[in-house]
Computed example of a mutant assay.
Amino acid sequence: MIPEDLFYSAEHEWVRLEGDVAIIGITDFAQDQLGDIVYVDLPAEGESLESGTVVGELESTKSVSDVFTPVSGEVIARNDALEATPEVINSDPYGEGWLIKVRTSGEDPTDGLLTAEAYSAVVSA
């Protein structure tokens, strides 16, 4: 399941743009590879992020995985509900399982991101 209306990173994060705000989460492929997610570490509100850098981590029953930000900007919201129920990322990665919201900075926030078709080719390879 790869929604057509989102942008993707090669590190398996998705981006939904709403004006200058990017909502970021991990893809269905990523959550499936991780297995049952049991802990989430996210950046604080107000933190400045640089595209491509590690901004948190997800711990599953299999491993610990870094979360990268696919866009630059300032964290304006984090999904604090995931602290109590991190498994929502497994059951609804593109909805209630979102991780952070970032007010984007710079030119085009989609620069360097993949379309659904291009991301599909990445996970099929």
Results as ranks from 00 to 15, higher is better:
residue 90 N to V: 09
residue 101 K to S: 09
residue 118 A to M: 08
residue 114 L to Q: 01
residue 62 K to N: 04
residue 89 I to D: 02
residue 1 M to R: 12
residue 125 A to W: 13
residue 57 E to D: 14
residue 34 L to V: 13
residue 116 A to N: 12
residue 69 T to H: 01
residue 101 K to A: 11
residue 60 S to G: 05
residue 16 R to M: 07
residue 3 P to G: 09
residue 38 V to N: 02
residue 37 I to Q: 11
residue 119 Y to V: 08
residue 2 I to C: 09
residue 77 A to Y: 00
residue 59 E to C: 01
residue 27 T to E: 11
residue 41 D to N: 11
residue 93 P to K: 04
residue 80 D to W: 14
residue 122 V to R: 13
residue 69 T to F: 06
residue 45 E to Q: 04
residue 45 E to L: 01
residue 46 G to R: 04
residue 104 T to Q: 06
residue 125 A to S: 15
residue 23 I to Q: 15
residue 95 G to F: 02
residue 110 T to E: 11
residue 106 G to I: 07
residue 31 Q to G: 02
residue 83 E to F: 15
residue 101 K to M: 06
residue 110 T to P: 08
residue 73 G to K: 12
residue 34 L to T: 08
residue 20 D to N: 08
residue 106 G to K: 03
residue 100 I to W: 01
residue 23 I to V: 13
residue 125 A to N: 15
residue 24 I to S: 03
residue 17 L to P: 06
residue 91 S to R: 14
residue 53 T to W: 05
residue 10 A to P: 13
residue 68 F to P: 00
residue 42 L to T: 02
residue 89 I to W: 00
residue 80 D to R: 04
residue 124 S to G: 14
residue 125 A to Q: 14
residue 120 S to Y: 15
residue 47 E to H: 07
residue 32 D to C: 02
residue 66 D to Q: 13
residue 69 T to I: 05
